[in-house]
Every structure is written in C-alpha cells, then in structure tokens.
Design a protein around this nucleic acid. Structure first.
Lengths: 148, 148
DNA sequence: AATAAATACTTGCATGATGCAAATAAAAGG
DNA sequence: CCTTTTATTTGCATCATGCAAGTATTTATT
C-alpha cells in the first residue's frame, strides 16, 4: 500500500478549501465554524445546544458564544424547551434557512463540477467508496470515538 | 444523486477528528496547525517560508509566528538561503523528524484500523477512488484554485 | 420532603490564532 | 541609480478557545 495518509491529506486539504470558499452569501460573511453550526442545526431534529456542540465536537462554552453571535445575526433562534427548562432548542430563522440552503447549493455545485471530470461509472464508484469509508470509520473503535 | 455534500461532510468531519487525535507525541503536544506545518515541511524539498505558507493556505504573518514557536520548540530549523538573502529555508530538526514520523505512523495505524473493516478489493476501490477524486479536484477550475 | 449530585447553559478570564497595515531588507527591472 | 517587487517580521486589534466558576434546573438518594 502506497502512502495512504498522503492521499487522505490531499483530499481533506482540498475539500477544506472548497468549504472555505462557500462561506459568503449575499452581504453575509460566515466563518467556517459558523457555517458548520448552521449545517448541523439544519440537519438535526430540534436539537439542544449540547447536542449540536457534541455533533461538532466543540467545547460548549465556545459554542454558546458562537450561538449568541448567530442569534444576533438573525440566523439562529433559541427556543426554551418547556419539558426541561435548562434546555434551549436551536433552529434556523427563515434567513438562516436561506443562507444554509445557498451554501449547500454552492458546495454541491462545486462538487458537481469536480464530478463532471468523471464518467458516470467512476462517479458511482467514488460515492460508493465514500459511503463505505464512512461506515468503516463509524465501526472503528480507534478514531472518532466520542461522537456519532 | 443523493446528498453528496452530506457524504463528504461526514467523511471530512471524521477524518478531522482522527487528525486531531494525532497531535501528541511523548511529552510534546502540538496543535493541528503545527502538525500540518511539520507535515508539509517534511514533504517539500527545502521549502522557503512562503512556499510552505502557500501550501497550507495560511497567511504568511500567522505562519511566521507559528514557525517562531516551532523553532523555539526545537522542531523546525530556519536556514538562511545564500542565493537570496531574503529567504529562509525550512527543515525539520532531528526531534522534528521524530515527532513527524511518529504522528505519521499513528495516523496510518488509525487508517489501517479503519481499512481493516474492508475486504482487500474494497480497500483498493476506496484508495483508487480517492486518487481519482484528488485528480479531479486538481483539474477543477472552481475549487482549490489558488493552490497546487 | 430535604439534600446531594448531575446536567444545561452562561460568563470571567487568560491565552493563542488570525490577518491587515506597515516596516525592513534584499533582489530585480528599467 | 531609482523604482518596483518579493520575503519576512512586527504592531495592533479582533476573534476563537477552553478551563474554572457561577446560575438554574432536574434527577437521584436517603
């Protein structure tokens, strides 16, 4: 087996750059972290602060302040949770939904461009491989343990 | 095509965690950024500061200070370049080489563990896919443009 | 029921990362 | 020469980070 780490490093570096290029929508400029927070809130079902912070593997105190910023930017809403009054449920405001959808579309467009350099068969192979990789990482006891 | 972005997001998130778990060697604790800097210096051939900063897509001023820290930690050496006295050539000290090799071994071990959940054929398919993906990202005009 | 322990979230504080503007120094071009 | 470009460093302001500690609320224990 050749140098596997190098393959992964190159890939994640480039995907990271792609991500970084997708943090501006209209007049709004987001940090990478903020973009990821919106992404997770959008994906999860009525998540609490703690749940999202865990999903992102971010310290809850830093997360708390990031959320304060996003609420001020009118992208995220914090709703008290009646069943447990310690908890806040996070959701996207309409503007937050819009921004998140725009970013999602842009990332997908970029990815589509990358995939346009492949045949249909190659594309399917690559997607299948990533799916498989994700499953194996989920199985692995050694990495990514605390989450998922 | 299902949600491609989600696949990539999950993958990079997990690989990021794996990376973060590989920043401690013996008594030395590195930040992710420092680990990446060592990795690039190790890979490149007698690189200048600017070249490594570009490869990592990091602002040269931040990079300069990170290098100062790594020099103080005795992991990196800055050698004046006689042919152009504005330039410093970066290299790893013996200790830096040791740390970098250790981290490399640890990451590869983790990746090996992940791949152990696959058949030989699947493993080859996944590696081939990543290689292909890297090539297509390199071709793509839309992402990762400034580098490589 | 009363108290202790655990959980969710926030704030204080110190430290470190970031990046622009500006400085220095050296090379390259005219 | 003199101007422009390039490589690196430093000043400065801002933001991110995470530990310790605090508040509020819920759950567990007696």
């Amino acid at each position: 087996m050749e140098n596997v780490r190098e393959l992964f490093h190159t890939m994640t570096k480039r995907l990271g750059l792609l991500d970084r290029n997708c943090c501006a929508v209209g007049g709004i400029e987001l940090s990478l972290v903020q973009s990821h927070i919106l992404y997770e809130i959008d994906r999860m079902n009525e998540p609490s602060m703690q749940q999202v912070a865990d999903a992102i593997a971010m310290d809850i105190t830093t997360f708390s302040r990031q959320i304060q910023t996003l609420v001020k930017m009118n992208l995220v809403k914090k709703t008290p949770y009646p069943q447990d009054r310690r908890v806040y449920i996070l959701s996207l405001t309409p503007e937050g939904k819009y921004v998140t959808a725009k970013i999602d579309a842009e990332v997908n467009e970029y990815l589509g461009e990358v995939f346009s350099h492949m045949s249909e068969f190659e594309r399917e192979t690559v997607l299948h491989s990533i799916r498989l990789l994700n499953e194996c990482m989920a199985k692995s006891s050694v990495c990514c343990k605390p989450l998922f």
